[in-house]
Design a protein around this nucleic acid. Structure first.
Lengths: 230, 230
DNA sequence: ATAGTTTGCGTTAATTATACGCAAATGTAA
DNA sequence: TTACATTTGCGTATAATTAACGCAAACTAT
């Protein structure tokens, strides 16, 4: 009979949200020992009878009350055997997107706090969570260019300038507004709605909506979403 | 005190090899109970004090004697809680590439056999290994188009026609030989060597070698490898 | 009215992809 | 020895796509 492993398995999630001034991630404050507090990614140990993705959903639900628009496995962190100094813990990391405009963070219970952090103002996190987050940002950036997941960070209906800003901000690149619009419109995956104005100065803009159904149909026909930048 | 988890953690590896007539994967025959034998991906439980990637290397070394040219984490399979009918096992899957021309498979010990299987002639495997393999093939195909990993499946020195065939076979697409050559050469990541002939009929061809160093330098400067097909 | 903004639609030049043509260099069969 | 099949290596013409701008329309604030 073989000796049982002494390895724990956890899930951690990066929850990304976008506001007009930048990309954010959701962090929770954890208590270590009696005095140490650290910000960390939401997550925790997997239960014996639950799937990995269920574990992520459960942890997120316990600690926040986000409504996910997208979730995907990121990477499994288990090469550093001392990433958790107390025990050997392997973490399966996920990343998720939410419409931050529709999100209210759960009221903080006890000493536990939940908060959005701008992606370039992340403090030193618990465990290897800074590493995980970095890897998540890279993945998000990459995926943004070849799959239409940007829409999952925006409200149902959005302005073209919102979409454009989202791409510019997250990818940290300059894009020609007119070429970007032409490109996206040529994909034929957006539909128009009414109008909006007065929100800002300038000419009133049309509101658009991402047609996921149509996108899936196009995929079947061999369509491939792709946005490139200089 | 929390109750300890009862979840095991394993690693499994897909080892890809390329021969002129197609893509292959390395499988081992496992004994289940007293009579059942199944082909499966090489792999096994992770030890308490070893990293995930070390576990893969060890398992591959125990079961085969492959010399890897590339290895990368693929995905962690833990959503199906009954993927192993005996216990809850979460598997971190890796995929690796080898130069199959230089590879001799370890002599089979006892009843355990190791064998190359052509990718479209894979039998029904143990656990969810067919699923893992499928996911690995998809990843390999995708990666082949945006990173120069095709060279890791070929000998140090190779003919252009080998490279071309590798792409055609694995991606199951037709490519214009001349445009393909032009494209790859334009990247300036190959260097020439001597000559070869007589291997086949026709005009003798130059042997090429992938310059990994140069590739890395180009990456630094913003270069992006990419092969597209109609 | 006038100035300042943002939107929506175009045009043109540069670059890249696609589809071929064809001669050179070999082995082989007549 | 010549003719033929085969594979390689280099080119060229055309189509398609990308990148770089121009500019008027539709608003707000002064």
């Amino acid at each position: 009979m073989e000796k049982l492993q002494n390895i724990r398995i956890a899930v951690d999630a990066i929850v990304f949200g976008y506001k007009s001034n930048g990309l954010y991630a959701l962090l929770i404050e954890q208590q270590f020992g009696s005095s140490d507090k650290y910000w960390a990614l939401p997550g925790g140990l997997v239960k014996d009878e639950e799937s990995l993705s269920d574990a992520v959903i459960r942890e997120l639900h316990e600690e926040t009350n986000v409504q996910l628009t997208f979730m995907e496995q990121l990477y499994t962190f288990g090469d550093d055997i001392h990433r958790d100094s107390r025990n050997r813990v392997i973490s399966v990391a996920y990343y998720a997107l939410v419409d931050a405009s529709k999100l209210e963070i759960k009221a903080s219970t006890d000493a536990e706090r939940v908060q959005w952090f701008k992606i370039d103002e992340i403090p030193s996190l618990a465990f290897d969570h800074n590493l995980i987050l970095k890897s998540g940002i890279e993945r998000l950036k990459a995926k943004l260019t070849y799959e239409p997941i940007g829409f999952d960070l925006l409200p149902e209906e959005f302005l073209f300038s919102d979409l454009e800003n989202l791409y510019c901000t997250i990818l940290e690149k300059e894009i020609d507004r007119r070429n970007f619009r032409k490109k996206i419109l040529s994909f034929d995956i957006l539909e128009q709605t009414d109008k909006i104005s007065s929100v800002k100065s300038g000419r009133p803009a049309k509101l658009f909506r991402f047609n996921k159904q149509k996108y899936k149909e196009l995929i079947e026909k061999g369509f491939h979403f792709e946005i490139k930048f200089a």
